[in-house]
């Protein structure tokens, strides 16, 4: 069932959220994540002391029950913490502190840690609250903060010419290969569909619940032979010399696994 089975603790934080509001002053930074179009947006305000600790913390959140509860919980978790410690507080820690979140909420409405990290980053970079609150933008909903959506595979370039493709001029080159195309929008999805004429094994990998494509492409995709792998974040390319596998983070289950692949296409 897709329903919202919240823990008592989550409901309690939702009903009585702690530290709602905003902060002002020279010693304040803000982190904003999410997008109202997706139904979740939050601002986390931190006041930072001379000793690099979070002296005060407040939040404002537009979102569902878990968005409010995770915001409230993180303000309690990190108040008084050193910034370096606070950066280590993860989405998983927040969910654990709430006695767990329903699986469907783990990815979509668990943004509080991201907003806190964003605030700390902004503090360190000297980004003022007004600049920080400029919309992060981004048309696609569920690869949430922009930097998560961007490919951050450390050894990506090492596989260029060895199974990694940043462009593809001749699709026949990948005939009968196991191809993984990273979802970077309509063009990537179109390429994936075109590839099915040459190989029966095409996977479109997206960190969202659905590829970030326009409605027309989405319906074409549904009817195509492309297999969509949702809520998957590539972490590392593996293989002796040539690409053999991709290490993937399953964002829904918060687990890692390896996916066999001969080619990985990340369009520039």
């Amino acid at each position: 069932m897709k329903s919202t089975q919240y823990s008592e603790k989550t409901l309690e934080h939702f009903r009585n959220p702690r530290n709602v509001g905003t902060l002002e002053g020279e010693d304040v930074a803000v982190g904003r994540v999410g997008n109202p179009v997706c139904g979740d947006m939050m601002d986390i305000y931190i006041r930072v002391g001379d000793d690099d600790t979070i002296r005060d913390i407040k939040f404002q959140t537009f979102g569902c029950g878990s968005a409010v509860a995770t915001s409230s919980m993180i303000t309690e978790l990190v108040r008084g913490m050193k910034l370096d410690e606070a950066l280590k507080v993860s989405r998983g820690d927040v969910a654990d502190a709430l006695d767990g979140l329903p699986p469907i909420k783990m990815h979509c409405s668990n943004l509080a840690a991201d907003a806190l990290h964003e605030a700390i980053k902004n503090w360190r970079a000297g980004v003022g609250p007004e600049d920080a609150k400029k919309q992060p933008g981004g048309a696609a909903c569920h690869p949430i903060p922009a930097e998560v959506a961007e490919v951050e595979i450390e050894n990506l370039d090492a596989y260029e010419g060895k199974g990694l493709y940043k462009r593809l001029d001749d699709l026949a080159e990948l005939a009968d290969e196991r191809v993984v195309v990273l979802d970077t929008g309509d063009a990537a999805a179109q390429l994936a569909m075109d590839l099915t004429d040459h190989t029966g094994r095409v996977v479109l990998m997206t960190s969202g619940k659905e590829p970030s494509v326009s409605p027309a492409v989405r319906s074409a995709l549904r009817l195509s032979d492309v297999k969509v792998l949702a809520e998957a974040q590539p972490l590392e390319l593996l293989g002796e010399g040539e690409l053999e596998r991709i290490r993937v983070h399953d964002l829904n289950e918060d687990e890692e696994y390896e996916l066999t692949a001969d080619a990985f296409v990340v369009l520039e």
Partner: peptide, 22 residues
Amino acid sequence: SACAAGSDEPSPVVQALGVRPE
């Protein structure tokens, strides 16, 4: 709402009426 329905997008019916997703 998307969250209440456990899906990615808010009600397609409400959006079909021309209501903005937000």
